[in-house]
Design a binder for these strands. Structure first.
Lengths: 241, 241
DNA sequence: CGACACGTTGAGATATATCAAACGTGGTGG
DNA sequence: CCACCACGTTTGATATATCTCAACGTGTCG
């Protein structure tokens, strides 16, 4: 739980509370890439902390096309909201191979009874997810293809930087152009063309599971990226303050 | 607070707890249509319960075009998430004239100290908002213009029905086609054409601030509307269970 | 009665989707 | 070690949903 709520402006756990959360983990395990964690509509008895790797939450349409509604990086409590909700309205899968820690809901309940202030912290964590959903609504609703892809890359860069997995311009992103398409609601063909354009314009290169941002300022301008919604404490190096 | 979390599957307040929440209200007041409640980025010291009327939460792009990220109906705790977050990442306005009840955050803190189970209830309420955001991401990402508008109308019908403001086919919706455009990320011109088509196909009529659903089943099919994400207890009359 | 916001309609422009095909490239087994 | 295979990427040509611009209609309220 070292990365959980790292560098955020909402209440984050103390060292002791991190210890309590770690103690509540019932098991840690590795899942392969493209594995299914849970399905829309099924009841949930534990929640999952993502320790290493990347996961998505998504909703299928009638033809089976996915709309990704959340992208998760290490330190994210992927389905914490499943604890109060009981049932999820979406499915969860891995993108890359992942290491996850499982926390049974019974343990969470015990924890919250023992330490009431932890409740506020977990609440805050789920609200960051909601804020991110709003950032994504803005992305889909108000940006063109280039803007959407730039926005996703800028967001991911900032989030990974907050947990020490990006230096502010370069990071590992083991996803396909098809994944990017399902995130940004474009076809993979169009994603490909936009990526080429970003590359040719020396804004950003995405290749072989690596993102290299050449001009962060321009990238974030294209994306109209305002990181307010990420509630990150130190917005060092971020373009639009 | 009579309508708060009415008919939902998440934990909802007992009669006594509703009393406590009502007692925490510092003032009730009326705001006119098209009034500003709060602005993105400003700190928040109280939260707002919507008693009557309709409100939106939105994010502006650089040209000042709004993307609406949430639509609120009576019984909604519009900015409850502002309590743990402290600062909001979006703005809030009224659409119609509204009656609102204001709850200071200090009162909320006192309430939560006195009654820990209330924490879970308020947490659940904010998670319903997040689930709605996901429904909206699906709408923007996977539906065409007709589907998006149908989806919004189907959702609003279900939500209003849960609080007794729709009979399942007819309800008052005092918003303009421009508002609908900002919700669905379309131009108001295109909204107009789609509404005509829905009307001519005898699916649904939206006119003079009234929605009349002629064929709920078809409307919800067009919208690929699956009300799972609303977590409504009795999904009576709803097309896709 | 006139003004102003909102709604309606038409013609033309454009971003993105769709269809089709070729091209890498890393992994696997013979 | 090479041949092959599957998967992801790249490119081109064409189709289409939605936008943009421009004008006109209509209801409501002072």
């Amino acid at each position: 739980m070292d990365l959980f709520l790292r560098d955020r402006t909402v209440a984050s756990p103390t060292v002791e509370q991190r210890g309590l959360l770690n103690a509540a983990v019932s098991e840690q395990r590795i899942l392969p890439a493209r594995a299914h964690l849970s399905d829309r509509g099924e009841p949930l008895w534990q929640s999952t902390m993502l320790v290493e790797g990347f996961m998505i939450r998504y909703i299928d349409d009638l033809e089976g096309c996915r709309q990704v509604v959340a992208f998760h990086v290490p330190g994210d409590f992927v389905d914490l909201h499943g604890y109060p909700l009981g049932i999820l309205d979406h499915s969860i899968s891995t993108l890359s191979q992942v290491l996850i820690a499982t926390v049974p809901h019974t343990s969470l309940s015990r924890l919250l009874e023992a330490d009431a202030s932890l409740g506020r912290i977990l609440w805050g964590a789920t609200l960051l997810d909601a804020a991110m959903h709003r950032g994504w609504l803005f992305r889909l609703g108000r940006l063109n293809a280039e803007g959407r892809i730039a926005h996703f890359l800028a967001e991911t860069n900032s989030r990974l930087q907050a947990v020490g997995l990006s230096d502010g311009s370069t990071f590992s992103l083991p996803i396909t152009q098809m994944d990017l398409a399902e995130i940004t609601s474009l076809t993979s063909i169009h994603v490909n063309r936009v990526l080429r354009s970003l590359r040719e314009n020396r804004v950003c290169v995405f290749r072989r599971s690596r993102v290299e941002i050449l001009d962060r300022d321009r990238l974030e301008r294209i994306a109209q990226f305002d990181p307010t919604y990420l509630y990150i404490a130190s917005s060092v190096g971020s373009g639009n303050p």
